[in-house]
Amino acid sequence: MALEGTLQDMSLSDLIQVFRMGPKSGVLLLREQIQHGIIYVSNGRMIDALILRGSERTIVATADEAVIQMLTWDNARFVFQHNPYVHTRPIRIHRDGEQLILEGMARRADPTRAIPYHSITLDTYLQLSPLPNNSGSGVKLNVHQWRILSQVASQKSLRDVCEATKMERTMAIRTVVELLSLGVIEVVAPPRPQKVRHPEKRAVATTARCDFGSDMQRDDASMTNGVHGFGTETKAPPVISHTLLNAIKRRIHAL
């Protein structure tokens, strides 16, 4: 048995809230056209997620970014299957579900937040993400991604990477965005002009996370709506005494 439906029947943000209320443990599988989404939920909390594309099952997003992208899906079919052993997976989602829902809402309202094409230039500096143990397993990179990745290790600007790889600018930016979605690399601030006495000053990461607070209250106003107005021309139920009703209750109790 499983919880099944479409995101039109029940939105992903509702599912995330229900998982927490449970609290539920299991795997949520979503399918939207050629994309498959997987979210691992342990004791009501999302711990890992990824999006796969096509028959090759190429991973296009992982962890927080994958959940945020799935929150923008409208028509996906979903199945949630109970699995109490999900907690054995490594935790790769560190933001609270509500923070991700808010981020998903913001991205839905402003899709330019989704993929930072506009913010990636040849002067963008990149570095490898500090990945936890085995969190990169399962990620298959294509040739372009490997070419970029091989150059990013030494904290170069994208201009340096393009020169080193002889990759065309547009292709390089697109590939960098793919790697950012996978969580393999991250953007860092440009290094400050080097001083003679401190040549090894490290750049500081700029990918600060937003703290949205955790006390988002549900809007339960809709619970009080929709009171059934019984029509005036309806057939009245039979009148029955409390004595008989109590006798029926006793009988059913005794069944």
Binding site: M1, A2, L3, M10, D14, Q17, V18, M21, G22, K24, S25, G26, F80, Q81, H82, D220, S222, M223, T224, N225, G226, V227, H228
Partner: peptide, 20 residues
């Protein structure tokens, strides 16, 4: 079913007043 939706959620989705 361990994946069953909670009663409070079903009540909200059915727009069921608290008197029912």
């Amino acid at each position: 079913d361990p994946t069953a939706l909670p009663l409070s959620y079903i009540r909200r989705r059915l727009e069921l007043p608290l008197t029912i």
